[in-house]
Nucleic acid binder design. Sequence first.
DNA 1: ATAGGGTTAG
Length: 720
Amino acid sequence: MFLRLATEKRLPLLSPFAAGIFTRGFSSIDRINTNLRPFPDYSPKKPGVKDVDLVRDLTTALKQRRSEPARRVLSPFGQRFRSDHLLWAFPHLRSDLPLVLSLIHWCRSRRHPIPAEALAIAAHLSVDSKHLQAARQFLREGLSHPRFVEQVIYTYKYWCSNPSVFDLLFRASVDAGRLAEARSLFFHLLTYGVIISTDSCNALLSRIPLHELLTVFTEFPESGFRWNVVSYNILIHRLCQIGKLEEARGFLRKMEDKDCVLPDVITYSTLIDGCCKSGELQEALELFSEMSIKGLKPNSFTYTSLITLSCGNNNVVEAERLFMEMLSYGVAPDAVVYTSLINGFSKKGNLFAMSRLFDEMKSSGHLPDAVTYTVLICGLCGSGKMLEANKMFVEMISKGLSPDEVTYSALIAGYCREGRMGDAFRLHNEMLHKGLLPNVVTYTTLCDGLCKQGQVEAGNELLHEMCRKGLVLNVVTFNSLINGLCKAGNIDQAVKTMIDMEAAGLCPDTYTYTTLMDAYCKSGDMDQARLLLKEMLDKGLQPNVVTFNVLMNGFCVLGMLEDGKTLLQWMLDKNIRPNATTYNTLMKQYSIDKNMKATSEIYKGMLALGIIPDENTYNILITGHCKSRNMKEACYYYNEMVSKGFNLRKSSYNALIKLLFRKKKLQEASRLFEEMRAMKLVADREIYSIFIDANYNEKNIKTILELCDEVVENCYVEEK
DNA sequence: ATAGGGTTAG
């Protein structure tokens, strides 16, 4: 199996009838392959007379008393025994591997070094007895001796070994990380006609760096060796990992057309995943249909890649469709595909769908693992449900699952978002206590949390601690710190930090620029903001909707509404889809300027593009219309937003109540006032006065007292 | 030999 003579390459050189030679056995092959090296003859070192006697007595004792412990049997020989005796003992024990093993074991226990030659022979004997595990161990140990390979070759013929010993030797080199050695071993063995198995060569492929992999991939077949589908899958996977999709696809064609190796589900799934990771949905779908045409049935790996991409594109509807399609094709779902889908919903904040799928997963017999729980915890944290996230954390531990760095980082991020830095650091300490090392993400999360609490200095100190632990800052860490500095009003230091970041070999990205541009915009320095925009465009960085929103906000608060509208047009021209925030920013400024006509036009433009208004949009419309005393419009938007399940902000309630009161709509005003109080929102003092007066007129003492209490409790405390 | 989880900007 393991040995194939390296003759295939020479085939074309033979005469037409030479092919028949191959059926006639080795002697014929030897005739045509005169340049194949023969295996050398073995001539062991000669023992002295006393040595001969010792070895005979020792091996006889071992055989005679084989049921007794070797230690006891061999103890009389302890004084006189040398490592050399081992070599002379082997011929006596050649078909008795258990005794060979116990003799070697005894040697080791007496601290006798085992010579390389003995290790080579022991490997041959082990292979001969089909004891591959023992052979592997001897070979692994032997590799630490110089010229061990030569020892194995030198002893090979005499000990009538099996060619698989070379395969094991090659494999041991690979496993020991001696990759260059393995590579040259391949060619060296070739000169003896030994061919390493594809499996072992594939083990080499999966361990070497990509540039060497590509060399090996072309250089091994020069001797007639052929790669198989696994080899191609390894290569394609590595190319996909670094985003070289074109080349990966090239090898898909090459394997079929040039090498007659048929791609399998793994080949296609690997390529599809590569496309998904690069966001190339179109490519992925092409390959998906191509594999089906070839009769290859996609599996849960294939679907997971596509589902994960859909979720990442914020398209959970498509993700769920794919999941249903997978089920309808009879592809069994597993914990991974469930986890991916659950993650999609949790990221959208759809906790209902998240727990529905979690239940479905459990009831269909798929055990949630640590990743599943991490996704659930993350989803709950993202929705501010820290209590439930903690419950999930406890549940996962009670199920015997171990939270890892990722789980902890997710929980820590949840606490940071709530400003609960004490809890965040408590978890950080808990990690250390459990022997889990906080990594860059954990530290970045904590640093960001500190920055958001206004403690930039502490954040910076934490990063120094992180560096002392040998961790390296990444782009996100820098961005977080830059943001902290900006929010603390220290733009100069933020810019310096960006320069540090570049000096550290990290490229500022869209987050970095957007953060700094926002700081300049908010300080009223639109010129600097524009300069940064130019710089990022020059670097080939794409501004995104957030970048534009930052600029939009800058123009709007400075009253530069015409620039704002130009910016909106520019976005549309650049095919960057504005979102509700973009429109809200413009609408807000127009409504502050009491230009409700323009506000309404912007709103219409938003609807025309199919951009869904959010809670903010309605609040802007309501306060704006109230300020312009458009009661009808204000009430219209109030009803619409309530029907969509949105809540009014305090300012919207205040404005609407005041307007209703002014228009003598006492009943409506009062109803809204009650609604506002039920929402635990504190009305303006002016509104309290209005309702206290109104109740006074009605002589409703109880209500008056209640309202007075509330005013004292809320308005007074708030104004202090 | 292939798939799922955590951090940053408005």
